[in-house]
Amino acid sequence: MMAAEESGDASRTLVAQANAALAARARWSPLEIAFWLAAAASIFLFPTKHLILTEIAILGLFALSLDLLLGYAGIVSLGHAAFFGFGAYAAGLLAKYHVVNEPVLALLASGIATMLLGFVTSFLVLRGSDLTRLMVTLGVALVLREIANRLEITGGADGLQGIVMDPILGRFSFDIYGHVAYVYSLIMLFALFLVARRIVNSPFGLSLRSLKGNPLRAAAIGIHVNGRLVAIYTIAAGYAGIAGALLTQTTQFASLSVLDFERSADVLLILIIGGTGYLYGGLIGAVLFKLMQDWLANLTPQYWQFWIGLILVIIVLVGRDRITRTTDPIRALVQRATDRVWSGVRGSG
């Protein structure tokens, strides 16, 4: 009798421990909060830099989208610009032909349209190795670019001109300094980040990590591997589409460059710089990439690509693992601080 009670207590303690550990995974760390406070503060701190900051926010969202694929599901892509570009043209066409005038609604519509494209093309990347996936994604992007080049409605090489954006929610008009555009982009980035954060911390997100590590075993415990891959590919496409749509809306222009191979390559580089699989890699990478590009372009207007290439080679050779290893102690310290703060909060509450 006593023994049964004791073992009951013991298993209750274990369950409580397990719950606590799982809850800790999804908890906001001070670093994360600081990151977003800094992002919000940038609105007021750098009012003259809102144009480049908007670019960074859009690039960050685009990289976040690729991180969902690469960092969580292990799907490599060399043609992620296909979705960025599709979303960009969708938003442009919606505005130009006054199908959906309100920017937020148009943004969602563009995202949903891109999700459809993502869903359809996802079946192409299900089978095959990384190399096949690189080629297939690259091919899809090339095909889309050529379609945009040929079609009359997309304006071909001249791009989609004559886009006039209505005020956001009927109240906030886009200004030439990009103030509204930056706040709008940042809010969208944050909202979509919250959703992504939810997704990766869900059972669905966990199953993605499992099938990334071992699809054979994932299937052997009943996970529908292909179904999950289709789902995340569709979601990621929607994210990329919204990023592209944001670019069109904030620049009131869409050109073939949204579908360029370079754009697909850049976003991959951004993720390599920032790191994959923790959601912030794309955002941090976007900041570093854009600043580096800007700085190097000022320093050596003609040869900046040389330096950026060199830096990338060094990053890859040194290995991000080694870089993270040096920052691991800091991360552990922050983790301990987080736990203490949270237990303090719970203790007083």
């Binding site: 719950n19 799982l22 939810r198 869900s202 059972p203 199953s207």
Partner: peptide, 19 residues
């Protein structure tokens, strides 16, 4: 936990947190 939530038909849920 993955195997258990898959068996209980909750493995594909994306809107709630693990645990």
């Amino acid at each position: 936990g993955l195997a258990v939530s898959e068996r209980l038909g909750m493995g594909g849920q994306w809107w709630r947190l693990v645990g």
